[in-house]
Amino acid sequence: MDVFMKGLSKAKEGVVAAAEKTKQGVAEAAGKTKEGVLYVGSKTKEGVVHGVATVAEKTKEQVTNVGGAVVTGVTAVAQKTVEGAGSIAAATGFVKKDQLGKNEEGAPQEGILEDMPVDPDNEAYEMPSEEGYQDYEPEA
């Protein structure tokens, strides 16, 4: 019985440690998101679009440190934060509304985080759909 109880105690310690790591990862992701939003706020009209992409990228980098179902929630929060940063930029006159959601080359930025393969159960990952990809044929 002692062996059984000791095993359960060790398992509990492992769960607590994993929860603490997840909590730490979420806190880091939130900190990076805040950094990115402050970065966007300090940019001029020309830099705002690039700044919004930076927020998304920093958040995406930190999301990889967070495991399990938390990833889905962090990704949703990050996307809403990026959308909010863009709205703030438009409201303050840093950028025109028609410039939001495009990178410096004018290509749409939507789907940055949505296409990231995420499995809350950590069982399997699927690649994003290939609808947006084109076949590449090298020139002879």
Score class of each variant (00 low, 15 high):
Lys45Arg: 13
Pro128Ser: 04
Met1Lys: 00
Val118Ser: 10
Gln99Ser: 10
Asp115Val: 11
Gly7Phe: 06
Thr54Ala: 11
Val77Met: 12
Gly111Met: 15
Ala89Gln: 05
Tyr125His: 09
Glu139Trp: 08
Thr81Pro: 02
Glu131Asn: 10
Ala91Trp: 11
Met5Ala: 02
Glu131Ala: 12
Lys43Thr: 03
Gly51Phe: 11
Glu46Tyr: 07
Gly132Pro: 04
Tyr136Lys: 09
Glu13Trp: 04
Gly106His: 08
Gly86Glu: 13
Asp121Lys: 11
Ala76His: 11
Gln79Val: 07
Gly84Tyr: 15
Lys12His: 13
Asn103Tyr: 08
Glu110Val: 09
Glu123Gln: 11
Glu105Leu: 09
Gln62Thr: 09
Tyr125Cys: 07
Gly14Ile: 15
Glu114Tyr: 11
Gln62Arg: 12
Lys43Phe: 14
Asp135Thr: 09
Thr59Glu: 00
Asp98Val: 03
Lys60Trp: 12
Val63Cys: 05
Ala91His: 11
Thr54Glu: 02
Lys32Asp: 00
Met5Asp: 00
Glu13Met: 11
Gly86Leu: 14
Glu110Ile: 06
Asp119Tyr: 03
Lys43Asn: 02
Ala19Phe: 15
Gln79Phe: 12
Lys10His: 03
Glu123Trp: 12
Val70Gly: 01
Ala30Gln: 01
Ala124Thr: 03
Gly14Lys: 09
Lys96Ala: 12
Val70Phe: 04
Asp121Ser: 11
Gly73Met: 15
Gly93Ile: 10
Lys60Leu: 12
Gly73Ser: 14
Gly132Asn: 14
Tyr125Val: 13
Pro138Ser: 10
Asp135Ser: 03
Thr64Phe: 12
Gln99Val: 13
Leu8Asn: 00
Leu100Ile: 07
Val55Cys: 07
Gln79Thr: 07
Gly73Asn: 10
Lys45Cys: 10
Ala85Phe: 12
Ile88Lys: 03
Gln134Met: 11
Gly51Leu: 09
Gly25Asp: 03
Ile88Tyr: 02
Val63Pro: 01
Gln109Cys: 07
Thr64Ile: 14
Gly25Ala: 15
Pro128Trp: 08
Glu137Pro: 04
Val74Ala: 09
Glu110Asp: 10
Lys60His: 05
Asp119Pro: 11
Leu38Asn: 04
Ile88Val: 04
Pro108Cys: 11
Ser42Thr: 05
Val52Ile: 08
Gly47Asn: 10
Glu13Phe: 13
Val82Lys: 07
Glu28Ile: 06
Glu130Pro: 11
Ala91Ile: 05
Ala76Arg: 09
Leu8Lys: 00
Met1His: 00
Ala78Val: 11
Lys32Ala: 13
Gly67Met: 14
His50Val: 03
Glu131Arg: 07
Lys21Trp: 08
Thr81Val: 15
Pro108Thr: 12
Lys97Asn: 12
Lys43Arg: 10
Gln109Glu: 10
Val52Cys: 09
Lys96Leu: 12
